[in-house]
Amino acid sequence: MFALLASALLFFIPVFPGIAAMDYAKQVLIESDFSNRDLRGVTFNLTNLLKANLSGSDLEGASLFGAKLQEADLSNTNLRDATLDSAIFEGTDLTNAILEDAFAFNTRFSDVIITGADFTNVPMRDDVLNGLCLAAEGTNPVTGRNTRETLGCN
Rank of each mutant, 00 (worst) to 15 (best):
M1C: 12
F2E: 12
A3Y: 13
L5Y: 11
A6L: 15
S7N: 09
A8L: 14
A8N: 04
F11V: 11
I13T: 15
V15R: 10
I19A: 13
I19P: 05
I19S: 07
I19Y: 06
A20I: 08
A20C: 04
M22H: 06
Y24K: 04
K26E: 14
V28T: 15
S32N: 01
D33S: 07
F34Y: 03
S35N: 10
S35V: 06
S35C: 05
N36L: 05
R37N: 03
L39M: 12
R40C: 13
K51L: 10
K51M: 12
A52F: 07
N53W: 02
N53A: 11
S57I: 00
D58C: 04
D58Y: 07
L59I: 06
A62T: 03
A62W: 01
A62L: 01
S63K: 03
F65N: 04
Q70K: 14
E71I: 01
D73R: 15
S75F: 06
N76T: 03
N78Q: 04
N78M: 02
R80W: 05
L84K: 03
L84N: 05
D85Y: 02
D85Q: 09
F89I: 02
E90W: 04
E90M: 10
G91M: 02
D93V: 08
T95D: 02
T95F: 11
L99A: 12
L99K: 13
E100G: 06
A102N: 09
A104R: 10
T107K: 05
R108E: 14
R108A: 10
R108W: 07
V112N: 03
A117F: 07
A117P: 00
N121L: 08
P123A: 00
M124H: 03
V128M: 10
G131H: 03
G131I: 03
L132E: 03
C133D: 11
A135R: 13
A135W: 02
A136F: 04
E137R: 15
G138P: 07
T139M: 09
N140F: 12
V142L: 12
V142Y: 10
T143M: 06
N146L: 09
T147S: 10
R148S: 13
E149F: 01
E149V: 02
T150I: 07
T150S: 14
